[in-house]
Amino acid sequence: MPLLEVRNLKAYYLTSRGPVKAVDNVSFDLERGESLGLAGESGCGKSTLGFSLINLLPPPGKIVDGSIKIDGIEVVGKPDEELRREVRWKKISMIFQGAMNALNPVLTIGDQLSEPLIYHQGVSKVEATERVKEHLELVGLDPDIYKRYPHELSGGMKQRAVIAMALLEHPDVIIADEPTTALDVIVQAQILNLLKSLKKKLNLSIIFISHDLAVISEIADRLAIMYAGEIVEIGPSENLYLNPRHPYTQKLLGAIPRLKKKVERLEFIPGAPPNLIHPPSGCRFHPRCPYRFEPCDKEEPPFIEVEPGHYVRCHLFAKR
């Protein structure tokens, strides 16, 4: 049984203009010790998927359908209080996008980091302090940072603190939502190296979210490409990199200079990302697809296994 099993997940923002289908019919698995990269344009629903996994969507977001099993426990529909006590941070934790903002500016680092230990495990303040200090060291920080406020730390230090926070209770799954985006290139590399070494050392299972394929390629064993709320291609990283099947993936990869260089934007794909309230009919990518043919705007393409473990959602590969 996989550690994380997501099936037909639908997470919508129920706005006054209609539901924003930010995650629509997403299914995937994650094995223990594995890292899954999740890539896609800005606004395609990556963060929404991340929040759904801990069942903590910001309003008006809601999981409307599907199932999420972490270590066999069904998360969807579980009461909030039980989730809080049993699942969040114990089974699954998150490194937030823009980690700087994930720290409360008026509380000390130690205060914030010891919270999950105190509220979950009922440990004493002293013990919590000890454990927090250990984890600060683990991510390469001076344990004395414990007494500091967030504004006294540099961006990279804050990011490390947030990573330490995510590791505190040794969760089964860690979601890292763009953990390096706001950092400059050198710090970005340091943080990536830290995550890589932690992964090896602690046998972590990570879902690594980024719109930057170059960054993802450093860490992901498997790669999922999201477009307009759907996963359009998923498979082993190497396969995807060397032999991308979906036209969107091809465009995405084609945009990366083969040198490992940061790519700021993926705007060069002609056409605008689709409106998620009224997504295009059939294949959601068809208005921007150069290979579009007759069924594309009518039928939703099925998920097709093109190689073992490599799936793609595209009519081009449908056997007729």
Partner: peptide, 21 residues
């Protein structure tokens, strides 16, 4: 703010989120 979401994700009880954070 993100830190509220973070606090909730960490399993901080809702009352504490409000009064402390």
């Amino acid at each position: 703010e993100d830190y509220v979401m973070a606090a909730r994700a960490k399993g901080v009880p809702e009352r504490k989120v409000l009064y402390k954070h």
